[in-house]
């Protein structure tokens, strides 16, 4: 039993490291071959975990080799357009100028119902609202609606808007995020003083605090169900 446990820990660490090294892509954004690689790695690890008659090295070497090849292939596809076309394929326009491209559907071996389903999932229930639909290399459908059907935005109304940047987390679960604090040009002293104005003496009592681009500080105390603590202040 101990052998199984030790092997499981070793393989878990290996798979964790391999997946981290292979990149940050989400499962939904994987290319088909990347999905196959992820499945192969998990299968190789799982077999050796349960069967102690298989030497661990028989799993470790293929996993490391697959990771190496995956990184090499990714680097090639990053630097070469030709390699990218071979590995990832090209996006296919399935609706062009409001018209379904039958030849493209045939070459993709995708039926019309699948396209209609993906359009509905994208929020377009009537195909006549769609100007372009593009089947991306990861199988997802990108939809460009007709100009009269797209959502209204401030530019259409000639409304000026102010800059909206990232909201920086300053405290997460009682711990100060010093990197974010430094990035917005503030320090722990300022943060402590701001929180003291609201009667918070210990930063550890803060569950979450963030600051937006307008200098508004938002915070929530730990075990605070009412969540009324919102402060607007200037970040100097």
């Amino acid at each position: 039993m101990f052998v199984v446990m030790i092997r499981t820990v070793i393989l878990y660490i290996l798979v964790f490291v391999v997946m981290r090294l292979m990149g940050k892509r989400q499962v939904g954004q994987l290319q088909p071959y990347e999905l196959a690689v992820a499945i192969m790695i998990s299968a190789l690890a799982a077999v050796s975990m349960e069967d102690i008659s298989i030497p661990l090295i028989n799993s470790i070497i293929p996993i490391v080799l697959i990771m190496s090849m995956q990184i090499i292939v990714s680097t090639f596809s990053l630097n070469s357009k030709g390699a990218r076309n071979i590995l990832c394929g090209r996006p296919s326009v399935v609706v062009e100028n409001g018209k379904i491209v039958e030849e493209e559907l045939k070459s993709l071996r995708v039926n019309l119902n699948d396209i209609l389903e993906q359009l509905r999932l994208a929020g377009y229930y009537n195909i006549s609202d769609v100007e372009f639909a593009i089947m991306e290399t990861n199988g997802q459908l990108s939809v460009i609606p007709k100009s009269q059907k797209r959502p209204l935005n401030p530019e259409d109304m000639n409304i000026n808007t102010s800059y909206e940047g990232l909201c920086h987390s300053l405290i997460v679960d009682g711990q100060i995020d010093y990197d974010s604090l430094k990035k917005v040009g503030l320090n722990e002293k300022w943060l402590g003083e701001e929180l003291r104005k609201f009667g918070i003496k210990d930063i550890e009592n803060v569950f979450f605090a963030s600051i937006d681009t307008h200098g508004k500080l938002y915070f929530q105390k730990k075990h605070d169900k009412e969540n009324k603590n919102m402060k607007e202040g200037e970040a100097s």
Binding site: L21, I61, V64, L65, M67, S68, I71, I72, T75
Partner: peptide, 18 residues
């Protein structure tokens, strides 16, 4: 850097296997 590391790792693996 990662690619160089991977190539070194592959060379080491081939050497180890040999």
């Amino acid at each position: 850097k990662l690619l160089t590391g991977i190539i070194i790792l592959l060379v080491l693996m081939v050497a180890f296997s040999t």
